[in-house]
Design a protein around this nucleic acid. Structure first.
Lengths: 193, 193
DNA sequence: ACGCTAACTTGATCTATATCAAGCGTTAAT
DNA sequence: ATTAACGCTTGATATAGATCAAGTTAGCGT
């Protein structure tokens, strides 16, 4: 049954680029399973990220804190990679925290091991490049979105494009994710029903 | 004197990861020089990006258009890479245009050649990964910035962190880049003098 | 099942910033 | 040299969404 977790990871990685059996054996041996309870943190603001995660099951949120208010940056679900990735790459203090919104099952790999794998295998290096590209493309989209639309438009777009997350994530986090207050979110919700 | 342009590219690339002479010879042969006049476009919204650029000299701006209004996404200067990078990677229609703010000298490489180089050389693949990482880290920072600060705070932060761009870029573009109107920008400017 | 806390709703008010409008200075074209 | 076009400034007004405050609901721990 732990097999399933590694199979999920394998599917995810080979979705980017093919990997030989030998490479997979080495690669996969470096990942360990971790479980984390609801409300616990993968990492807190100001810490340096040493791990890169794969979410097998659960929901997590990334958020920064500004003057005591939380600013929700994003979410990770089943099949996503997670972690304070910019801190992980640059080894700078993380500007945000990652917290489990549900009990979650993850795989993690530490930075040293991952970087050794990058050195050792071109396929893994390629996966790293393509994964970075995917994240980057998503962030570029979101940047334009955030600046192009009103609160109402952003609400409706989220509703159309990711209806499932309304079930998974408390409204206040969705509101913050869309850059509005919980009150505004609630009013939009009422309006559209 | 064209040497200087290639030397600048070499310095930029090897700043990420070392590259052998043979690799460099092959890699550099795939880049061609392009010149572009002030106000001309590298790419327009809706087109698919086939090239990846290196700015030897000049200033460019990337902007999206929403309801006739321009939303400035970012700038490229001497020593930066440029292009509609997400369109280049995903081969989807670009959501933004790139326009020269000054007469500019660039190097460009087409996608096919670059991807062949990724296949051929692990060092180039690594450069690709690290370059993606750098862009990604920058975008993550900017995302948090854009959401954490008021117009005034954003203005002051830009003034402190990148005073040079006040000389290079018209105010209206800086205003849009910071997510405010030109009027608001002008008022903040007056206030702080 | 009960009580407590946190999430959500609803209404009243406030405010940062946008919008609209008009004028000024500088550059560029005729 | 004159005018047109554009970028910047300044003032008046409008508004989306925030903030503040109070009440309601729902989930969680004991």
């Amino acid at each position: 049954m732990q097999d399933k977790i590694y199979t999920a990871l394998k599917n995810k990685v080979t979705g980017f680029t093919p990997i030989s059996d030998a490479e997979w054996a080495d690669f996969s041996s470096k990942w360990q399973m971790v479980e984390i309870n609801k409300d616990d943190y993968l990492i807190k603001e100001g810490q340096i990220e040493h791990y890169f995660y794969f979410v097998f099951d659960g929901v997590l949120r990334a958020f920064a804190t500004k003057d005591g208010d939380e600013i929700c940056i994003g979410f990770s679900y089943n099949g996503d990679f997670s972690g304070a990735y910019d801190s992980f790459l640059a080894q700078t203090k993380s500007e945000f925290a990652i917290q489990a919104l549900t009990k979650s099952t993850l795989l993690k790999i530490n930075r040293e091991n991952l970087f050794l794998l990058f050195d050792k295998y071109k396929s893994i290096e390629r996966w790293g490049r393509l994964f970075n590209a995917e994240i980057l493309i998503g962030m570029a989209k979101r940047q334009v979105e955030a600046r192009s639309y009103s609160a109402e438009e952003k609400y409706l777009r989220l509703l159309n494009q990711s209806p499932h997350i309304f079930q998974l994530v408390p409204q206040k986090h969705l509101a913050s994710y869309l850059g509005m207050t919980a009150e505004t979110f609630s009013r939009l919700r009422k309006k559209k029903r």
